[in-house]
């Protein structure tokens, strides 16, 4: 009888291909690999992977979250290429996905966090939208922190917002640094369940480095970048873009 059950299980796995959890994990691997040696097509592929899983209903919010996360990476890429139009297309789609995410799972702090960050990026591309999305962005991140006060990614997002917001609008580099350091501290003990987002462990030092560059401290920046590479030697962003800019 046991045998019979095992056979049935094998059979169902064969039919579905993979179970949803494995499917998410393999998608996360795709994202990681696309980031490691930045590759547009691979990131698109990771996005497509999660889109295929959307109809696995009970995890729809998580699939949408990862679609938005891929979008976010693509937005950075298109922006760096100067292709604002495509960047905006993926940004707007990401915002749409995340608004669904927080409807489907009201307690998912990383969902609120990424949404806040994407609104921030939108304000960066279209500054006149600031007055509309500024307060929405800050409301979202505060809601996220309320849900998970020890989630380091949220302080990283808040810090980035503080760094890029003009001082007249309440931005502050000092505050950004405080938030980044808090995030860095929390990352040391951050250990989310495997299906959940866990990015940022080495990126936080990339952000600290960029902040130091803005503050005119290239040596400190370099130190942070090296720290980032210490944690993740394959951090392509730091290795190929940020660090070479200082040298």
């Amino acid at each position: 009888m046991k045998k019979y059950l095992i056979i049935l299980l094998t059979l169902s796995t064969l039919l579905i291909g993979q179970n949803p959890d494995d499917f998410i994990l393999s998608g996360k691997k795709k994202i990681h690999s696309a980031l490691e040696h930045w590759n547009e097509q691979e990131m698109m592929n990771a996005r497509a992977h999660f889109e295929r899983g959307l109809h696995l209903n009970d995890k729809e919010w998580l699939f949408r979250y990862y679609i938005a996360y891929c979008n976010d990476q693509l937005v950075h890429y298109y922006q760096s290429k100067g292709d604002k139009k495509t960047a905006l297309t993926y940004l707007n789609d990401g915002i749409k996905q995340l608004n669904e995410v927080i409807k489907l799972n009201k307690d998912f702090a990383d969902g609120y966090g990424l949404l806040s960050s994407m609104y921030g990026e939108k304000m960066g591309i279209q500054p006149w939208t600031g007055i509309m999305f500024g307060s929405r962005s800050s409301t979202l991140i505060r809601k996220a922190i309320q849900l998970e006060p020890n989630n380091p990614r949220l302080y990283m997002i808040q810090g980035t917002s503080a760094m890029f917001t003009p001082e007249k609008w309440g931005g502050s580099k000092e505050e950004a640094k405080e938030l980044y350091l808090k995030a860095a501290e929390l990352f040391k003990t951050d250990n989310p369940p495997p299906l959940m987002p866990h990015y940022g462990k080495s990126d936080i030092y990339a952000w600290l480095g960029q902040l130091e560059v803005k503050l005119g401290h290239p040596d400190e920046a370099k130190m942070y970048y090296e720290k980032a590479l210490e944690i993740d030697p394959n951090n392509n962003w730091v290795k190929k873009q940020l660090l070479p800019r200082i040298k």
């Binding site: 579905i16 698109m44 497509a48 889109e51 295929r52």
Partner: peptide
């Protein structure tokens, strides 16, 4: 390019190339 093509009953699918 990058169009997602997949079967609804399984998770089998692919993305178009350039």
């Amino acid at each position: 390019a990058y169009v997602n093509v997949y079967f609804m009953d399984t998770l089998e699918g692919a993305m178009t190339d350039e």
